[in-house]
Design a protein around this nucleic acid. Structure first.
Lengths: 242, 242
DNA sequence: AAAATAGTGTCTGTAAGACAATATAAC
DNA sequence: GTTATATTGTCTTACAGACACTATTTT
């Protein structure tokens, strides 16, 4: 394929010739649990921000794609496998890290509350406080005992971006299902939407809209032992039917 | 601010200790002209893809932000200043560049057709062919004399992502105005929307929706010498009034 | 006057919000 | 039966699409 010219160029090319930023990946792992939006945080074991909480992250290896790096970090630092991830935004302020120039490609991951894993002293989920409506607003901080927890680096900005993104996508794409187990009731789905959006939604139109969307498939099963009339269990409709 | 421990850590940190990808920025400059969506392409003067057309791009300097790099590239390689830009997506396939590992942060820029600058042999706008509807679909190629023009690297993927992004944002954010001069008629705005979306839109409801959105401000002026009843000229309503 | 597009008014269909009525489980 | 929520049906309102009609400019 390559011409002689191009081959000789490639042979002579020195990849180390120029100084370059480091490249990292950070992942905002979000879930809905105990009626609130929550994010997975890990306690830093290195400088800078030693001991502070932050998003799981790490450097991109030379031979892995960005999404592969995100999945590896989720596995290594979050103990999580097979979760939904999507690229969020790339943060490249020259002074976002005091050590050196580090550009980070942020991803977000969505998880149903049944798969949180076990909390440890240095890795657990924190409730998020979003003090703005819709997609207006800036950083989002976790709270602990009612107090805002400061985060390392610009990770509160990354969480803010993640919340804006999923609020925006919730009504147009099937990401709400990623926050629920395999089967769920319409009430559970509505509850997830309300928690993510930070506002109540109309029950009747939510129900009609979801059923009309073609994204839901009735399983014929019903929820059990709920102290009232049990609701039908649905699952996310794979595109196969379309 | 830094503790003694942290200071000594920072002093000893060696930024060159690990191999890392190169970091570049590519910009998809889009405009609507001659009834079609167009993109600015430059002819490559180096290997790889010597002589092929591609998006203007370049490496990120150590002390500039990503958006500053995008603006610098627009100025240096596109001869453009003060244009609307927004981050699009980061492309990091390990083999997207045959030379070495290069991760690129793609931006898109929107320009009104009156500011295209003068075309040169190695830098000009090409019409884009989008052969899918809505936001479904993959790469987008430029066309020249009816034939698809192959692009360097994964730049057709970047153009595809840019088209999906602006189609999705058009109805919710005021990006349509970025593709028009300071003042414009409702027909011109509708024409821009139709060209970007790749489909006709209903004139009456478009007009009602735009006027009700509060994003438009009548100037009191009218278009001149058009061979029919002249339309009112509008401008994008700065948020000042809200 | 003819041509062409701007702009207004009205009707219809669709979907959301509101609310009432009925259904079905646990207790 | 009581309680609590699921599910269905109906009415109202808001808005998009469609279409008819009037307005205003150039030729």
């Amino acid at each position: 394929m390559a011409t002689d010219d191009e081959q000789s160029f490639l042979d002579q090319y020195d990849p180390a010739a120029f100084e370059r930023p480091s490249l990292a990946v950070d992942v905002a792992v979000l879930t809905v649990a105990r009626g609130a939006l929550q994010a997975l945080l890990v306690q830093r074991t290195e400088h800078p921000y030693l001991g502070a909480w932050g998003l799981p992250g790490g450097f991109v290896s030379m031979d892995e794609s960005l999404s592969a790096a995100a999945r590896r970090i989720l596995r290594e630092k979050g103990g999580l496998d097979k979760v939904f991830i999507e690229q969020l935004y790339t943060f490249g302020d020259p002074v976002r890290d005091p050590r050196m120039r580090i550009v980070t490609v942020a991803y977000y991951a969505l998880l149903d509350a049944g798969r949180l894993g076990h909390a440890t002293a240095e890795r657990r989920f924190f409730e998020l406080r979003v003090d703005w409506e819709g997609e207006t607003g800036g950083p989002v901080h976790p709270v602990e005992d009612g107090a805002e927890l400061p985060l390392a680096f610009d990770h509160a900005d990354i969480l803010g971006m993640a919340v804006r993104r999923i609020r925006g996508k919730l009504d147009y794409t099937p990401i709400g299902f990623q926050l629920l187990p395999e089967t769920f009731t319409l009430r559970q789905l509505q509850h997830v939407h309300e928690t993510v959006l930070g506002r109540r939604v109309n029950k009747d139109s939510f129900r009609r809209r979801m059923l009309a969307s073609g994204q839901l498939e009735a399983t014929g099963e019903r929820e059990q032992e709920v102290g009232h009339r049990p609701a039908e269990l649905y699952q996310f409709a794979r595109r196969s039917a379309i």
